[in-house]
């Protein structure tokens, strides 16, 4: 196979979409041709960069609830259709709880209440997702000097990373996550057997605030701002210890 033919087929080759004969011919060519191998490496890097850098936009919870409501109205059992509209009710009840809990603090930092409730929901689902399978941490390290540089180039800010082992809250790793449509740093700490996710992103202003502990799906959530960063802590740890930890994290 000539170089031109190989270059033309690198894209489907990379996607494993060529028939075995063509694929084999390319493998043989690549073994001896450095310029085509370099071209393959560039394509592989492009794919990896796309997967790493492009945001995966998950559907907002409110959209999901609307769509579930629509589907239920047309497809659900006839006797349970219109009167129930369950997701909406659940959602507004849950939002109401979050709003009551967070309202004072929300007014303080000027976030609107709906945004606050939506972000709390999202942070809790991120936390739950992080507990599933091996998703918890992409960089497993108890060393803050390994975790902090890992975020370089992955985020447009540098999250504060500290280890609190001495106080009984060891750092176990970090990963990228998404909250309210932006990439955030997720730092993972542990308190005994409890996992604590600390989501960090740049705050709109530099004030220092801390919300009361709110509860959602059995998890405790605290929002805070400090030193130009916004924090959201989620854990099944008891409220008092989580509050104490939030104070450490926000200096």
């Amino acid at each position: 196979m000539r170089c031109d033919d190989v270059i033309d087929r690198l894209s489907p080759f990379l996607d494993d979409e060529l028939d075995p004969v063509e694929s084999q011919a390319i493998v043989e060519h690549l073994a001896t041709c450095t310029s085509c191998s370099a071209a393959l490496a560039r394509q592989q890097k492009l794919s990896a960069d796309l997967r790493a850098e492009l945001e995966y936009h998950r559907a907002p919870d409110l959209l999901r609830a609307r769509i579930q409501g629509d589907a239920r109205a047309s497809l659900g059992p006839a006797d349970r259709r219109a009167p129930f509209a369950v997701p909406w009710r659940w959602l507004s009840a849950a939002a109401a709880v979050a709003v009551v809990v967070g309202a004072g603090w929300v007014a303080l930092i000027g976030t609107n209440e709906r945004e606050f409730a939506a972000m709390t929901r999202e942070a809790v689902s991120d936390h739950v997702r992080s507990l599933m399978a091996d998703h918890l941490d992409d960089v497993v390290s108890t060393d803050q000097h390994t975790v902090k540089p890992w975020f370089n180039g992955k985020l447009d800010f540098s999250p504060p990373v500290d280890d609190f082992s001495a106080s009984g809250y060891p750092l176990v790793g970090g990963r990228l996550d998404y909250l309210s449509g932006r990439a955030v740093a997720a730092l993972v700490y542990q308190r005994r057997k409890h996992v604590i996710n600390v989501f960090v992103w740049p705050a709109a202003d530099g004030g220092a605030t801390m919300s009361p502990v709110s509860t959602r799906q059995g998890f405790h959530v605290i929002r805070a701002t400090h030193g130009g960063m916004a924090f959201c802590l989620v854990s099944d740890l008891n409220a008092d210890e989580l509050r104490a930890f939030a104070k450490m994290v926000t200096g």
């Binding site: 995966y56 936009h57 998950r58 559907a59 959209l63 999901r64 769509i67 579930q68």
Partner: peptide
């Protein structure tokens, strides 16, 4: 419905 995220993305 399980593909809602894919749809939105």
């Amino acid at each position: 419905l399980r593909y809602l995220d894919a749809a939105y993305n």
